[in-house]
């Protein structure tokens, strides 16, 4: 699971959960793989991303590196910044681990890079 996907997920649909965001990451196995850099796509993606959440997530899996904690202005024209963003958004891949609901502690396992967001029948 990539950090862009993590950035979009919330456990708000669960009973008794009001925000459910962000999900905590407990990573067991994290991999990076090279993905073609597409500056236009990253520029379009950044406004959709919760930047703080992205930085925290990157830090919790040990790949924050020198990514600025604050979103800079005119990032569209800063190739260096876009490359750093590209790396954390698309290249860091959590292969095994867990996502944890911040309110209930419900764990969602990640196996083989695929998070399992299925609830049990007594939770829906």
């Amino acid at each position: 699971m990539k950090l862009i996907t993590h950035n979009m997920l919330t456990s708000k649909c669960m009973k008794g959960v009001t925000v459910g965001y962000p999900l905590k990451i407990q990573a067991v196995d994290v991999k990076t793989s090279e993905v073609d850099f597409n500056p236009e796509f990253i520029s379009r993606l950044i406004p959709k991303v919760d930047w703080n959440v992205l930085c925290e997530a990157a830090e919790s899996v040990g790949f924050l590196d020198d990514l600025p904690r604050e979103l800079i202005e005119n990032y569209e024209n800063d190739v260096d910044f876009l490359k750093k963003a590209h790396r954390v958004l698309l290249e860091v891949d959590i292969i095994n681990g867990e996502l944890v609901c911040p309110e209930t502690g419900r764990k969602f396992p990640i196996n083989n890079g695929i998070p399992n967001m299925l609830l049990n029948e007594d939770e829906v």
Binding site: M1, T10, C13, Y21, P115, L118
Partner: peptide, 21 residues
Amino acid sequence: QDKYVDVLVNDFSTQFFRDDT
């Protein structure tokens, strides 16, 4: 492979995507 973001196991009737996705 560069265009592949992710797949998730998810029941469509309970959505985990943030409201503003």
